[in-house]
């Protein structure tokens, strides 16, 4: 993987390589170089399989990390490309023309993280959620507990016990 990295480094301005395993490494790529790097990896280096595309919310740093995971089956190695986007202007180029299956991932990221992928097919159609008007729910600042408390109510008659107190009462009803 080091050898591939040094070759790519001559062509693209890449960040440091993180070698997680012998067959798995991650590298950070500037946003504007991602498409050309993906095409290079697919067409020249045999990374033909897009395993997944997902996002990580680093709220404290105000960035989204997009992870594009590619596999070269012949050489049994997987490369993860990290792209850092500012959270407040989260827009990324679509890659559905390189891998059609990416359109689904981008649709999900649009809905769950609010990351825009202009020109991606049906990207603004609802994917999993229906009639969602809150902030995108997979963002770190979306509080699931608060949302549940505001939108749902407890079933009438439901009682919550403190486990220690409850067991004490059951085992020693007289309080001894």
């Amino acid at each position: 993987m080091r050898e591939l990295y040094s070759q790519l480094k001559q062509l693209f301005p890449l960040g440091e390589l993180t070698e997680q395993r012998q067959d798995l490494a991650f590298v950070t790529v500037p946003q504007e170089h991602l498409r050309s790097l993906l095409l290079h990896l697919r067409d020249r280096e045999g990374f033909t399989h897009l395993v997944l595309l997902t996002a990580v919310d680093w709220l404290e740093d105000n960035i989204f990390q997009l992870t594009y995971l590619l596999t070269n089956r012949e050489q049994q190695r997987t490369l993860g490309l990290r792209v850092m986007l500012p959270r407040d202007a989260a827009t990324m180029q679509s890659i559905h023309d390189i891998w059609p299956t990416a359109a689904t991932y981008q649709r999900e990221l649009r809905e769950m993280f609010g990351i825009a992928f202009p020109d991606s097919p049906r990207v603004d159609e609802e994917f999993i959620l229906e009639g969602w008007i809150d902030i995108p729910p997979y963002r770190r600042d979306f509080d699931t507990l608060k949302y549940a408390e505001e939108n749902y109510s407890q079933r009438p008659g439901r009682v919550t016990h403190d486990p220690a107190e409850h067991m004490k009462q059951k085992l020693y009803p007289g309080g001894t």
């Binding site: 997680q20 395993v51 992870t67």
Partner: peptide, 15 residues
């Protein structure tokens, strides 16, 4: 850190 682990389930690559 970050990692990706995969296996071959009955439908294909699960990871």
């Amino acid at each position: 850190g970050e990692t990706y682990v995969r296996g071959e389930c009955s439908r294909g690559e699960y990871g």
